[in-house]
Design a protein around this nucleic acid. Structure first.
Length: 601
RNA sequence: GGAGCUGUGGUGUAGUGGCCUAACAUGCCUGCCUGUCACGCAGGAGAUCGCGAGUUCGACUCUCGUCAGCUCCGCCA
């Protein structure tokens, strides 16, 4: 590098800098060689600027520029000048100017990259992930990471100004029952024992409240060894927050302020406050989801009362059996072909719906193979409940409430997207509150905590813990943005007697509770303040703000759906010596070690 | 654990039983070109069609299996 120092980023140059001597460093975006004149677009994180090499003025630099190729790393010393009349490029931020190169240094050469370094590339994700360092050179990827930084900074500033302390908690923790599968780390010093990577710093942050730290936050990595999705990675980042001496409203209003400020500071978006609040029940009833996307209508309508007495056995028997019948109005879809409707039925079947009854509304009433099972009055009532107009397609599911909600909720989203009902540039934040405290786990034959076992029931519902646990509601809340759960939290139990009732309700006995959470229960006996908190999924938040479809696009080094890293091929094998040191013996049935470590070709 | 989609020169695609000695675009290489900015023009190299079996006289094409990526169900308090 010698004595050269970069003077400017490429993307900042404007006509104000005309006449200035500059030193730029960056990558070759493109070279346009006209024989007697060479243009090089030089790129760095700030953007592009055109560099001109002229043989008449600086022969040596011109000759060197001839050997330059895409992605070479250059240092250019030259003079900024306004481009000759008629040659400005209005599509480029720096398009009014160019840099006349006086001296060129090729700092490094580069192999031809496997894909273009530009926005909107349509390349197999295999290739992008294997060459992630090249993928991350693309401006849209850099913008996402920059946005991520700015969101984190905004949140950190806000919390700091509001008296929160950023406190680190251990990554090497211990496995606890309930919740997701843990990532385990063997302890060399303690043979046969394992640390668990935290699913979240939940227990630590509550202990910090016991310690009197009052207001805590952390932007922290969390780990869950579960199957991946577009919005789920094995390691992800939470904005984790906990405060003492607060109740639900204190937390919700402060968080609204934080979120609103963050949106304003990062993407210039004004979100109206207060955010709407929906009870869990209302969300399920109207949208079939506990994370409703309220950017469009297509709400679910209950026709169980009409269906109960009708002649269509499938409907009436479901209602008799305690189920429900609900429908949505796919407005204007009355012209769907048999195949299109079959596809909708198949779609609903993914969510366990055994069928999909449908009515086509016409000028002369209902067209349906099922119409004969209903009398005029019933048909009229159904149409009016779903606000059916001629040309509409009414779709119904009759089943247990869970299946009805899952299938119609999913169908609603599917149709909303397909029919183009979802507006761009709309950000609908809302709270879902009053979650059930417990959820019955069929497989295990017991109740499990819907949120986590330290979630406080609503005061009025405490007696229900022993009588009808399924009916108890929690002081828990989720924050939802455009149908994506971007955060959730609760007021915690701070009294030992209620905590014990909670453990009892979810079938954790006194001895198990002591073994797994003994330290916590003991801590709670030393003067625990009422407290509560929330955690935001930073990756999901950024994904939505950056308008991406997957959190992989806002994480620098994400993993594939099979939890591997295609760049460094993690997870990898370890040496027998390493295993021996950890007292671990492998017991692998089929795949020999290393079977899956070959590069995708 | 399950369902679906995808896999063809570096990249993106076309080809769906013989017409394929695999096409197109772009990228790459060489030459020419002094105002381009997706520069242009001319020429050239580059693929045993993810992998393995099977069916067939014949497989990029059909079947089965397998691997990889993606989407989803289960799972994820």
């Amino acid at each position: 590098m010698n004595e050269w120092k970069r003077s400017h980023y490429c993307g900042v140059l404007r006509s104000e800098q005309a006449g200035r001597q500059v030193v730029l460093m960056g990558w070759v975006q493109r070279r346009r060689d006209h024989g007697g004149l060479i243009f090089v677009d030089l790129r760095d994180r700030s953007g592009l600027v055109q560099v001109v090499f002229s043989p008449d003025l600086h022969k040596e630099a011109f000759d060197k520029a001839g050997s330059v190729r895409n992605e070479y790393v250059l240092a250019v010393s030259g003079m900024v000048r306004v481009r000759p009349a008629g040659t400005a490029n209005p599509n480029l931020a720096t398009g009014q100017v160019e840099v006349l190169a006086q001296e060129l240094r090729i700092l490094n050469r580069a192999k031809t990259p496997p894909f273009y370094i530009e926005n909107g590339v349509d390349v197999d994700e295999n290739v992008r992930l294997r060459y992630r360092y090249l993928d991350l050179r693309r401006p849209e990827m850099q913008e996402a990471l920059i946005l991520r930084h700015r969101v984190a900074k905004s949140v950190r500033d806000f919390l700091d100004e509001n008296g929160f302390l950023e406190i680190e908690t251990p990554m090497l923790s211990r496995s606890t029952p309930e919740g997701a599968r843990d990532y385990l780390v063997p302890s060399r010093v303690n043979p046969g024992k394992f640390y668990a990577l935290p699913q979240s710093p939940q227990l630590y942050k509550q202990i910090l409240m016991v310690s009197g730290l009052d207001k805590y936050f952390q932007i922290v990595r969390c780990f869950r060894d579960e199957d991946l999705r577009a919005d789920r990675q094995p390691e992800f980042t939470q904005i984790d927050i906990e405060m003492s001496f607060v109740d639900v409203d204190d937390i919700l209003s402060l968080m609204e302020e934080m979120v609103a400020r963050m949106c304003r500071e990062t993407i210039g978006l004004d979100v109206p406050r207060p955010f709407p609040r929906l009870s869990y029940q209302e969300a399920m009833d109207r949208f079939g989801s506990d994370k409703p996307d309220t950017r469009f209508g297509l709400e679910l309508k209950d026709i169980s009362d009409i269906a109960a007495g009708c002649g269509f056995k499938v409907f009436s028997s479901v209602v008799d059996g305690g189920g429900q019948v609900k429908g949505i109005n796919a407005s204007g879809c009355g012209s769907f072909s048999r195949k299109e409707i079959d596809d909708l039925i198949a779609f609903a079947a993914i969510y366990k719906a055994k069928g999909l009854a449908y009515f086509i509304v016409t000028e002369d009433g209902v067209k349906s193979t099922l119409a004969k099972f209903f009398n005029e009055q019933e048909l009229g009532a159904i149409i009016s409940r779903l606000a059916g107009k001629p040309g509409d397609l009414l779709l119904f599911v009759a089943d247990k409430p869970q299946v009805v909600a899952d299938s119609l909720g999913a169908l609603r989203l599917h149709l909303g997207e397909r029919l183009g009902l979802i507006p761009e540039n709309t950000y609908n934040f809302l709270w879902v509150v009053d979650f059930p405290l417990l959820d019955y786990d069929q497989a295990e034959g017991r109740y499990v905590a819907m949120h986590h076992p330290f979630t406080s029931p609503r005061e009025a519902d405490i007696p229900l813990l022993e009588s009808e646990p399924g009916k108890a509601r929690a002081k828990a809340y989720d924050i939802v943005l455009n149908g994506v759960e971007v955060g959730g939290g609760s007021i915690r139990i701070h009294r030992r007697d209620i905590q014990e009732k909670m453990f009892a309700a979810i079938g954790i006995g006194a001895s198990e509770a002591m073994e797994k959470f003994g330290f916590m229960l003991e801590a709670f006996e030393f003067g625990t303040p009422p407290h509560g908190g929330i955690a935001f999924g930073l990756d999901r938040l950024i994904m939505l703000l950056a308008k991406k479809n997957t959190i992989r696009d806002v994480i620098a080094f994400p993993k594939t759906q099979s939890a591997t890293d295609l760049m460094n091929l993690a997870p990898g094998n370890v040496s027998p010596a390493q295993l021996k040191e950890l007292n671990i013996k492998l017991n692998i049935k089929s795949n020999p070690p290393g079977a899956k470590t070959n590069r995708a070709t």
